[in-house]
Design a protein around this nucleic acid. Sequence first.
DNA 1: ATAGTGACTATAG
DNA 2: GCTATAGCCACTA
Length: 102
Amino acid sequence: MISPFSKRVIKIIQKIPAGKVATYGQIASLAGNNKAARQISRILHSSSGKYDLPWHRVINSQGRISLRSGDGLEMQKAILESEGIQIINDRIDLAIFQWKNM
DNA sequence: ATAGTGACTATAG
DNA sequence: GCTATAGCCACTA
């Protein structure tokens, strides 16, 4: 069982189109709590394996991946690049690749 | 109810 | 660019 908030977050994440990324704060804001960025990561952890979440499209506000090397970072980078997202110096240009929920 | 935790964010030095 | 601090919130025990 998951909370309404988590459900909203999951639904939002599933709406992120391939080739785009979203920040934790952005998702939190869309879910109704722009301060709940930290929870996004928790939800990803608890749901990425149970649900079909494109967790790799969720990054931090710097356009960088918060994962530590060996924890899936390499895989995430590979997936993002395969979706057409350019990663320069481990950084993504949010001005171009950030998902706009319109 | 309380305390601990975290794939965050913003600010300061 | 870096670390350190503080704020903020949901989940878990």
